[in-house]
Nucleic acid binder design. Structure first.
Lengths: 244, 244
DNA sequence: CAGTCCTAATTGTCAGACATTAAAATGTAT
DNA sequence: ATACATTTTAATGTCTGACAATTAGGACTG
């Protein structure tokens, strides 16, 4: 908490960066209390509003939490997977929607990453996770389901598959890839026959997971990817012919 | 930009959330200008400092950029992969260091994800990316390299492999997994013989990539994972016997 | 027409005040 | 002495008003 001023012309950003670096470097450990806003203003020689803007930046990244009252203040927050999930999903979603990433590219990445989980999930899935997959398959088979509900169930199915690997780091990384696809998937309207094919492939995945057969899971995911890609292609082709 | 107030007791967080939702939902498109701080204070019926704290939160997530001057203001920012990279890396690093994630778990996730890139990278890698991999291998073979420099080169090697897949979404997701491992890898001191084994495996990877042989790349990565895991195990075992 | 100056709009920063909260210290009654 | 109510205090949350810095665009001038 000294000098080393980047002096980029934005005081609150500089201060936030300095404190963030101290946290990442381990100089500030979690649950450790930062100096009060008044003390920080003195140390950095800026006004309290400026310090507050810096602290809000850190709070937005879940790096600190604040508490009011006599023993209150800003505390280094233990960054939990729970907190990181929504951020990861928001960022991934915006990356896809703002950078003209093609459906093809996003889909390829998603299934490549999921296949990475296949052998682990086949080996370790709990009965609970398998039951979740079966339950989502059942939901997807219900007629009269809206396209959105179908997609949401699809996401839940795939998340159960990923969580089956029993590796929180994998689950975290995959959350972004899987959830961020949902807006893209929602652009597709599924016919009854489309759904039947997808559900059948989901059954293949679940069966392979149940049999602890990693390669079969990977193969089923590859088939599912191909089905999804060709489905999207035909939808986009039709949309080019009859633009709304 | 009106009601739907979550009223969580934190005005700037609520306002930030409302604007963020509008951006994610697509109501505000990129490069679109937000109302001025004065106008926002009126619309949300709060003071300007409070609005500013909300805007700083959004800026911390790279959702907006601000410009001074007559035609200035806050603009919705096109979230670029470039901006998202460091955030992803910071978050992943903190998740590992603050949640007692074992070396084993992190390493497993990393190599599982890298194997997902193997077939794509084998098929598509450019000569440039292959050259980068060879160059890093050469650097790693230099005697007298510090452990940190060795690890940094290791990261560069693996990033070239991942980038070889030619899928920006994959590169983005993997950046977190690969870079966040570096602090953990730095805890290991490599003997000359350790390095030689790792470099030999890197050569296997590069050879397989050069030969466009996806399965061989995956196999080499699996070998590399096993080597890394057993190396870490022996280091930690020794540390338990002779704690510093 | 070109260059310069001025103006206006907007963000960046500061100072000081008051409101709100929650823990700790103090006081009081049993 | 202990249990409970009250006061104090230290901190964040918010507001008001002001000034500085920056930048685009218009007005003025040669």
């Amino acid at each position: 908490m000294k000098n080393a001023s980047p002096k980029s012309g934005d005081l609150s950003a500089d201060i936030a960066a300095q404190i963030r670096d101290a946290i990442v470097a381990g100089d500030l450990r979690f649950d450790e209390r930062l100096p009060s806003e008044a003390e920080l203003s003195e140390q950095f020689d800026v006004s309290r509003p400026t310090v507050r803007e810096a602290l809000k930046r850190l709070a937005a990244q879940s790096l600190i939490r604040t508490q009011r009252g006599a023993t209150g203040g800003a505390f280094v927050k233990r960054l939990s997977f729970e907190d990181a999930y929504p951020q990861q999903i928001t960022t991934s979603t915006l990356l896809l929607s703002m950078n003209a990433v093609s459906f093809e590219t996003a889909c390829e990445a998603r299934y490549a990453l999921e296949r990475a989980c296949a052998p682990l999930s086949a080996a370790r899935r709990t009965p609970d996770q398998l039951a979740t997959m079966r339950a989502e398959i059942h939901r997807q088979s219900q007629p009269g389901l809206t396209d959105e509900a179908f997609c949401a169930s699809d996401v839940a199915f795939h998340r159960a598959l990923v969580d089956g690997a029993g590796n929180p780091v994998l689950s975290y990384q995959l959350a972004g890839a899987v959830e961020a696809m949902q807006p893209l998937m929602n652009m597709i309207t599924f016919t009854a026959r489309d759904r039947a094919r997808i559900v059948a492939l989901h059954v293949s995945v679940a069966d392979a997971v149940e049999a602890h057969d990693g390669p079969a899971v990977a193969q089923a995911l590859t088939d599912l990817e191909q089905e999804t890609q060709s489905l999207a292609e035909s939808v986009f082709a039709q949309r080019r012919k009859h633009p709304s």
